[in-house]
């Protein structure tokens, strides 16, 4: 999922998830661009404070904190219960899985961004 990240917190190697444009609508950096050290400091110099990056609970760069494990299980159970009646209809199954991932990813980033 696409979230806002403070540019100071970014390490080299993330991929930009949304275009950066200037006030005249001119494209400065396109989404999909790999942000290396040079580009990051260039953006900082131009006054960019934060950018959108794509994150996913399945590709964390750190282990899931113990405190969140139970809440993640709750999310799984809650969503499965709500979607049970749809009997694995292919669209509803995709929505259920995407919702679980969304809720868990948001839980994780709310947790790490807190401190």
């Amino acid at each position: 999922m696409i979230i806002k990240k403070r540019i100071d917190d970014l390490k080299e190697g993330v991929v930009l998830a949304k275009d950066i444009v200037n006030e005249n609508g001119l494209l400065l950096v396109a989404k999909g661009t790999f942000l290396d050290e040079k580009l990051l400091s260039l953006l900082k110099d131009r006054g960019v404070k934060w950018v959108y990056v794509n994150v996913n609970i399945k590709e964390l760069d750190q282990p899931l904190p113990k405190e969140l494990e139970e809440e993640c299980r709750n999310i799984e159970e809650r969503i499965e219960k709500k979607f049970k009646e749809f009997d694995d209809h292919y669209v509803m199954r995709k929505i259920a899985n995407s919702a679980k991932e969304y809720l868990k990813t948001r839980l994780f980033y709310n947790y790490v961004d807190k401190d």
Binding site: I2, V91, R106
Partner: peptide
Amino acid sequence: AWNSLGMLVEDIEDIVSEVDS
């Protein structure tokens, strides 16, 4: 409704990923 949108089921993942922004 689903058919009229002409979407792929995989598109749902992309859509969900853009909700917060």
